[in-house]
Computed example of a mutant assay.
Amino acid sequence: MKLANQSSGVEDSPLTPFLKRLTVYTSGGPFLDGYILTIIGMALLQLEPVLQLDAFWTGMIGAAALIGLLVGGAIFGYVTDLTGRQFMYQIDLVVIIIFSILQMFISTPWELVALRFLIGIAVGADYPIATALLTEFSPRKYRGAMMGLLASAWYAGAVVAGIAGYLLLNTSPDAWRWMLGSAAIPALILAAGRWGTPESPRWLVGKGRTAEALTVIKQVYGSHASLADLDEIPSEKTKISRLLEPEYFKKTMFVSLFWTFQVAPCFAIYTFAPQILAAFHLGSGNDWIIGYAIINIFFLTGTIASMSLVNHFGRRPLIIWSFIFMTLAMLVLGIVPGAPAWLIFLGFAVYAFFSRPAKYP
């Protein structure tokens, strides 16, 4: 990745070409997440009869990547603190490319479950790796917008997956192989774009490698930048066990539970979108893609709105009120028997719109 050759300091740096490219390629992780977790929904339309999947295997295939995400995110945040951001930033994409291609050659349900789980680990690993790298490079005044783009990228990936799946679905009985293998294409593009990204100067300083950190800072921000421009970097290590102490436990549970309750139904909707929309009679045959696309617009609109609403209302009130509206929407979908199509669609739309403010904080 080509580095910028301008700027006066770190926190007050302009949005240089390097920082723009870093934001785009870092957003590739959430993009792949949205793509991989959505394309399986289209592939399952063909996989169910081909592999003779029952409810158990269909659920396992749909959930495998999400379970892998939880494992990858939990483990590799710690690993990247030990080994650095640069190496892990590229190797996780290589893993996604390899396992995505291997999916094309599976012949049994358990093989696909295993590969989806491993892909999920790699995608989950990219969240703490890429987020840390972007946060540690981004100037203060652009940090919120740069992080907000990560939230939007997930839905961009989901939309692209929906389009790809729709176009491939009726091309051949083996189209599912190409759907699953297609994730290797954006992963390969991202891996090429990430090549040459320098190590985080904050991580280097934390490891005592100040000379290397200074070199990176001057390359990225300009010859006038120095280590003094960096935010204060803690000199003492913090143990994970501190999260269980009274001071942090309540806050940790608040964030973790809300995140879990937001993610689980959202990913279920995306993974099994064709089946869910068909069950609600929102489109016959392949026409469900129209309802799916419109609902995606509400997800994306909520993402954009949340980036401004969070500063106006505050994080805690925004997340609580968003969950109130999401709950009401799910109640409409779950307990209103024989609801008219417009009410069902409204339930999906309200849930989609408020799902992003619930997650963004």
Rank of each mutant, 00 (worst) to 15 (best):
K2Q: 12
A4F: 05
V10H: 06
S13E: 02
L19Q: 11
L37Q: 06
L45E: 06
Q46A: 08
L47Y: 04
F56I: 06
A64Q: 02
I67F: 14
G73S: 12
I75D: 10
Q86G: 09
Y89V: 04
D92N: 14
V94P: 09
I98E: 08
I98G: 07
M104A: 15
T108N: 09
L112H: 07
L115Y: 09
I119M: 14
V123W: 05
G124A: 11
G144K: 06
A151G: 05
I163K: 12
N170I: 01
A175C: 01
W176I: 03
R177K: 13
L180P: 00
S182Y: 04
A187I: 04
L188I: 02
A191W: 09
P198Y: 05
R202C: 01
W203L: 01
L204G: 01
G206K: 02
A211M: 02
E212M: 00
A213Q: 02
T215F: 03
Q219F: 01
V220S: 03
Y221D: 02
S223F: 00
H224V: 02
A225S: 08
A228W: 02
D231A: 07
E232N: 07
E232A: 14
S235P: 03
K237I: 03
T238H: 14
T238I: 15
S241C: 04
S241M: 13
E245T: 10
K251F: 09
T252N: 01
F258V: 11
F258R: 06
W259Q: 13
T260N: 10
T260Y: 15
F261I: 12
Q262M: 10
I269V: 12
F272K: 01
A278W: 05
A279C: 00
G285A: 09
I294K: 11
I297D: 07
T303Y: 14
H312I: 12
H312Y: 09
H312W: 13
W321M: 12
A329H: 06
V332I: 15
L333T: 04
W342E: 13
L346D: 07
Y351K: 07
S355W: 13
S355I: 03
R356C: 11
P357S: 01
